[in-house]
Design a protein around this nucleic acid. Structure first.
Lengths: 218, 218
DNA sequence: CACAGCGAGGACCAAATGGTCCCGGAAAGA
DNA sequence: TCTTTCCGGGACCATTTGGTCCTCGCTGTG
């Protein structure tokens, strides 16, 4: 999945800076529009207009709408993973998880829960009729969970987390709480459910902390 | 929201059995198609064909597509709440929750996680561009959570759950785990994440059980 | 039995939408 | 500089899609 740049051409063509920029502009516009309106509800004309390009450019860079959507899946996946890597790469303590939680909640509260998770919403919309998109999304979720579970592994190795804690399962549970939280918050147009969901997951992880371990609650 | 029957006519017209049946047929077909393809990706012609009716009938019973979709939201909401009432109404013990969990997991495993939750998927697709639908969905989620929290209240009153347990928050957390589980299972085409998510939520609830309370783990 | 109202069927329409094609012009390599 | 390759703009097209409308026949009621 992550074998190439976000803006990668499909065939070996002479690639110019301008071309890359155009492609990027298209993806960026599609990302923006489809976040708000959904994938199928966004037309190529919308994308064309918002990206300040032309029809021929769309079809120059993407074979058809499905290709554009798949590229967008890749694009968003890269964005999310990049962002999450920043917050999770050096995760070594429970308070780090709390900070991570707070950042997500705060970001989502800026728009009162609207729009949800860019990955989650695509997953719901695409999983049942674009196998390739589904599989990319699934891999992205897996990579995202791995960022979390790697952090939990570090915590376990350092003795902060008990040996019987299962980082993979905890990460999956946390991700589900996050996605479910996004969904409920989106339906309610209110971040509260997302907070409750994340807090539940964190509480669950907390129950695996070694009693009075090294670090106090910073 | 729940002020009328699932199949309710919009104006005062002479309503015949046949009319009701037609309306029901349309809703049922829309329900089926939109579960699989999504709301916007399902055309009215698809619905017409699948319901064995005609265009004029669609517009006889529903003002436009949006109305049909909203009716479907109500329809699904009623279906889900009816189903869930069966499983949660007499919830009085932790093992009851486990049974509830098992039923959901089993149902979802029949199609390897595909299609997700009928309510959740609509919430993702509609929340950001149909305020009325969003609000109905939000209310339905609230009612669903209430079925859970009522059960938890009963457990708390009977002494099975500790006094410091917060049934509302626990219910929200459980619902988020369920929805997130549906979402991840759908993306993975595999029920496993849903199981993990629900188990996490149940484990969390379990942590509020009164130690060695009345009933053993049936 | 007659008649008014309702449901069924489907032709029809305008607009939107995905997709094609062609031409002019800008870049990059020789 | 000159040529080839690629980018930009947009006219154009076929199909799909939501939506309208008219007609026929059935049904229930006075």
């Amino acid at each position: 999945m992550a074998d190439e740049q976000v803006a990668a051409p499909s065939k070996q063509r002479r690639i110019t800076q301008r071309g890359i920029a155009t492609r990027e502009r298209i993806l960026e516009a599609a990302n923006r529009l489809m976040s708000v309106r959904g994938v199928t509800a966004t037309t190529l004309d919308d994308v064309r207009e918002a990206s300040q390009t032309s029809k021929s450019q769309l079809y120059h860079h993407f074979a058809d709408k499905q290709e554009l959507v798949r590229a967008l899946v890749k694009y968003r996946g890269a964005l999310v993973l990049q962002r999450e890597r920043g917050g999770l790469e050096r995760l070594r303590s429970f308070s780090g998880l709390v900070r991570w939680r707070n950042a997500l909640v705060q970001a989502n509260s800026l728009n009162n829960g609207k729009y949800g998770c860019g990955l989650g919403s695509m997953a719901v919309e695409l999983s049942d009729h674009d196998e390739q998109a589904r599989s990319m999304l699934s891999e992205t979720f897996a990579a995202w969970e791995k960022l979390i579970s790697d952090g939990l592994h570090r915590m376990r190795d350092s003795g902060a987390l008990r040996k019987d804690a299962d980082p993979e399962k905890l990460a999956t549970g946390l991700m589900a709480a996050l996605q479910g939280g996004y969904l409920l918050a989106n339906a309610a147009h209110n971040v509260a459910p997302m907070e409750v969901a994340l807090d539940m997951a964190l509480e669950h992880i907390k129950s695996f902390l070694v009693e009075s371990s090294g670090e106090p609650t910073r």
